[in-house]
Design a binder for these strands. Structure first.
Lengths: 228, 228
DNA sequence: CGCCCGCTTGATCGTCATCAAGGGCGGTGG
DNA sequence: CCACCGCCCTTGATGACGATCAAGCGGGCG
């Protein structure tokens, strides 16, 4: 496959984190950023690796997952273009708690730890953006814990659908699954079999219609009631 | 009960977060900090409340929990003296995702949001400490997710015991449960019944001995093997 | 054309929650 | 000091949810 060249400055400027950075700081940062290309299935880092910076997805898709001893894994997050990951772990003296793997051919930018730290010292607003970013991630994780511990499998699926619905120009409400159903199932902490059955049941109840990776929401209000 | 007076300056100085703060900044902060006393069972904030600062536990104990619609709840964290909470949520525009309740008579210090923000602008090192704190919390949460999703109930209990063992001067290895078993069970995402049964089994296997809130570790190496 | 992979569907099983009842300990009041 | 009550914890019986095992279907790609 042909990896296209990246305009690093452009990509970085789009990150909320860097919006308010002074030009001088920004230039230094943009100069040391490195491009990293991954082929589908390639692993960026393993659980236990030592972090030396964070990453921004420019094209493609990255899967973050927890790996158990016996090859089983649980998908924790899926990152697409414009999303960054690995920030938090820079500030600790600990190795990566997760595995990062490309689900398709992917282009990343790597931002070295040192650059972030100097930017931090020079720009308080940058710090605030970083803090905001981490806080959101924490919030999401807490919602995940809530979801895994207090909801049935069907409720988790319904919750996922409701919070990822897009309204198309045609007025149709639809959810585009970000990956194949195996991966989505793992993200929701289900087996593929269970996800399939839940989709089946919701379809029979006339609430949704599944077309490959697209899920049409036929009755969102009734679907919301199924959350109880 | 008699709440004792708090030396706010002393307590705050002990927080890693404030170690490097310049005296001038620190004085301003110490001046606006408020004391808050809670009786056992009293609720500090509900899920959905709007955060305006964060808290430091001086004496007593605070429980953070997720509440479902029907009164059930899942304990997310237990905070004791010297521990702070509520930092992350200050940096978002969102309400508290959890409930905070005193498990015993408790004294807190409240640090207003505004003070934190001005300290942030004046002191880059403060930012770094805050980031480190949030990162650790994120890391813990990921481990929780791993634990809930990839481990059996027995393995969760064993993991908890192993990572909370203290070696006494006598050489005895012991875990002091931080709260009654109902709360600990919820923290580990178990019912009290299941926790009781796991303790029972581990005791029968000669691995531990339970004495009220103390758990003696009789055979830590064999216990570690039970993690698989 | 045929294979592989993703997905579905069915049958069975295990883990853990739930429901129910009883025991023990501490605290309070007589 | 004793009796009572409430709460915490344990123990047993049952059941449900979702995982696992197994098989088959269909589509995309070599």
């Amino acid at each position: 496959m042909a990896f296209q060249p990246i305009d690093a400055r452009q990509e970085l400027r789009n990150l909320a984190m860097f919006q308010n950075l002074q030009d001088k700081q920004f230039d230094k940062l943009a100069a040391t950023v490195r491009e990293r290309d991954l082929q589908k299935g390639e692993i960026l880092f393993h659980k236990g690796d030592k972090p030396v910076g964070f990453f921004l997805v420019v094209r493609g898709q990255i899967k973050l997952a927890i790996a158990s001893t016996q090859g089983q894994e649980k998908v924790v997050d899926l990152l697409g273009p414009g999303q960054s990951f690995g920030e938090a772990v820079m500030f600790m003296e600990k190795p990566y708690p997760v595995l990062a793997q490309a689900l398709m051919d992917t282009q990343l930018l790597f931002i070295p730890k040192n650059d972030v730290f100097t930017a931090l010292e020079k720009d308080p607003l940058f710090a605030r953006q970083l803090l905001a970013g981490l806080s959101i991630r924490l919030h999401t994780l807490i919602q995940d814990v809530e979801s895994f511990t207090m909801r049935s499998s069907a409720a988790r699926v319904v919750g996922y659908l409701l919070s990822n619905t897009e309204r198309l120009i045609s007025g149709v409400e639809r959810v585009d699954l970000p990956a194949n159903k195996n991966v989505v199932a793992s993200l929701l902490n289900l087996t593929p079999e269970t996800l399939s059955r839940v989709f089946h049941d919701l379809t029979e109840a006339g609430l949704i219609k599944v077309e490959g990776r697209h899920v049409l929401i036929l009755n969102s209000s009734k679907l919301a009631q199924a959350l109880a």
